[in-house]
Write a protein that binds this DNA or RNA. Structure first.
Length: 304
RNA sequence: GGUACCAUAGCUCAGUUGGUAGAGCAAUGGACUGAAAAUCCAUGUGUCCCUGGUUCAAUUCCAGGUGGUACCA
């Protein structure tokens, strides 16, 4: 008999939070958030953190337990979550992992090859090289350093190329020799539930939620974070558009429009990612009864 | 009511010296093993307002109609 990790995934604003609370109560278990921005304690309104009541109803992990200046990554996330799971599975038959960060979910479910945390100096140098000499220059370096990876990377995507170069300068090893992409075995079952909603309805919800966030004082929250604007954690839909408003780049109205649009784009990327989960149970978030039945069936099979 | 201007993609508009059309934005599809709410790639969308005329051929020229905008009354 194995324990089961239920993965509740879906695009932003689809309705994950409310459902996850209900599901966790039903399963008498705890929630691990799989959200790359909800881990930061300084952000609240703009990352749609569950309400105080919700947080008190069900214990949540990996929510607001990091600070914006801290370096965090999918690799760290994997290790921390595996640790939490080890403990939780001592007393719980099932645990709920819920969120919209596909790479974080995959890091837990499939594993991620070990890389060291980035060296700031090396990253700065490489970024500077890219910014001053252009993408050709870093492509050229990659071709000589790691020809195998050069063949398979997206050569238009500077971040991918820079990561591989950074790895080489830090470890002396080729990125392609470290990153194998082979899924690891996990000592628990994994059941995917992917939440889906009509596209137009989802977009309506995004638009409404954005307006509500502003009504709830998002601007004041962002004002306090403005001084940290260069930090990666704040390279986040919503905050960047509000910062641009503070900096006089565009109006508040324009910022709101851009936030809605960029959130829609983000949701689209998430939907694309979750199409990978071939064996997922795909369902509308309000079909709670069907979801409960799915969950119970999965658990009884795991007990056989 | 009169005069002028306008009517082309979901929106804002360009264009065709007459040979059925293209930009931006929006939208859509995709990639993605450590910056991932990040980053990157790809793709169109059409009674060219309606009716008639001229013409081998009209979205384009002409006339009338309809709608809009501005000014005059």
């Amino acid at each position: 008999m194995k324990n089961t990790l239920f993965i509740l995934a879906g695009p932003t604003a689809v309705g994950k939070t409310d459902l996850s609370i209900e599901l966790a109560k039903r399963l008498n278990t705890e929630i691990i958030s799989a959200d790359s921005r909800q881990v930061y304690k300084e952000m609240n309104i703009g990352t749609a953190i569950p309400s105080k009541e919700q947080l008190s109803e069900v214990k949540h992990h990996m929510i607001q337990n990091k600070s914006i200046p801290e370096y965090f990554s999918a690799g760290k996330y994997e290790l921390e979550v595996l640790d939490i799971l080890k403990n939780l599975f001592r007393k719980k038959k099932s645990v709920l992992l819920t969120g919209g960060s596909g790479m974080y979910i995959d890091a837990v479910c499939k594993g991620i090859d070990p890389l060291p945390p980035p060296d700031k100096t090396i990253r700065r140098k490489l970024t500077h090289k890219f910014e001053t000499e252009g993408i050709e220059s870093i492509r050229f370096d990659l071709k000589h350093i790691d020809p195998e990876y050069y063949e398979s990377v997206d050569l238009n995507n500077p971040k991918r190329i820079l990561k591989a170069l950074e790895t080489w300068y830090q470890t002396g090893k080729k990125y392609s020799s470290i990153v194998k992409g082979k899924a690891k075995n996990r000592p628990f079952n994994m059941e995917y539930i992917v939440l889906e909603r009509d596209r137009q309805k989802l977009y309506d919800r995004i638009n409404q939620r954005t307006d509500i966030m502003f009504d709830n004082g998002w601007i004041d929250e962002a004002k306090k974070l403005h001084k940290h604007k260069g930090i990666n954690a704040l390279n986040t839909v919503g905050y960047k558009e509000i910062f641009a408003y503070f900096d006089g780049i565009h109006s508040l109205e324009r910022a709101k429009e851009l936030i809605k649009r960029n959130t829609r784009h983000y949701a689209k990327r998430q939907i694309t990612w979750f199409k990978r989960y071939e064996n997922a149970f795909r369902i509308h978030p309000e079909e709670t009864e069907k979801i409960f039945i799915f969950v119970e069936n999965a658990l009884s099979q795991a007990n056989e």
